[in-house]
Simulated assay, not measured.
Amino acid sequence: MRLVLASQSPSRRMLLENGGVSPVLHPANIDEESLIRASAGPAEETVAALARAKAETVAPLYPDDVVVGCDSMLLLDGTLQGKPHTVDATVNRWRSQRGKVAQLLTGHAVHYRGQWVVETVTTRIRFGDVSDADIEAYARSGEPLECAGAFTLEALGSWFIDSIDGDPSSVIGLSMPLLRRALYSFGLNASEFWS
């Protein structure tokens, strides 16, 4: 039995590897923008739906393995924010979020032999009052361009996050405590996946 990660996120892979797991990497190809537009529910349901869509795409290929899909978005001033993708969008995002508090929502969908655990973890992020020069340099580094909320907690972005209230691994991209609880609900132990 293996743990399959339906994601290409290096941060999620790092969390699993640091936790003793050598995941099978099978990124799911879904139309995230269409799913976001079609979602009429609360923000937490939107990110959970994205995570489930990823896991559903991959799960049929791994019927006897645990498949994990995740998606993260930042809820800032009542609006969901995805990945900025460009330097200019990153600069604009940081100028609007510096000095503020937002919620990072990470949806999880864990599948095992027809059973599902689908849940969203919410963590409060307090952004530092970052200088324009640091915002420009951070955006130009390329690091935040493909990150929910335009930041990382585990790398250069750590300079600019004053505090978090919640699960740090969820901010990085995958809640290890949630994954542990999901495995327990399936009658499995986390240690069964350690290399």
Rank of each mutant, 00 (worst) to 15 (best):
E32H: 02
E33R: 14
E33P: 07
E33F: 00
S34P: 07
I36M: 10
A38P: 04
S39E: 09
G41W: 04
A43N: 00
E45C: 01
T46M: 08
L50N: 03
L50P: 01
A51I: 09
A51F: 05
A53W: 03
K54R: 13
A55L: 13
E56V: 09
T57G: 15
P60E: 06
V67K: 05
V67D: 11
G69L: 02
C70E: 01
C70G: 04
S72Y: 01
S72R: 00
L75N: 08
D77V: 07
T79H: 02
G82Q: 00
K83H: 12
K83A: 10
P84Q: 03
T86R: 09
T86S: 15
V87S: 12
A89V: 03
V91C: 14
N92T: 08
S96G: 12
R98P: 11
R98K: 15
G99E: 09
G99V: 03
K100S: 11
A102W: 01
L104I: 13
L104F: 07
T106C: 07
G107F: 04
A109G: 11
V110S: 13
R113E: 10
G114W: 09
Q115M: 11
W116Y: 10
V117K: 12
T120D: 13
T120Y: 05
V121G: 02
T122G: 05
T122D: 00
T122N: 12
T122F: 04
I125E: 05
R126W: 09
R126Q: 15
D129K: 14
D129G: 03
V130C: 14
V130N: 09
V130K: 07
S131N: 10
S131K: 09
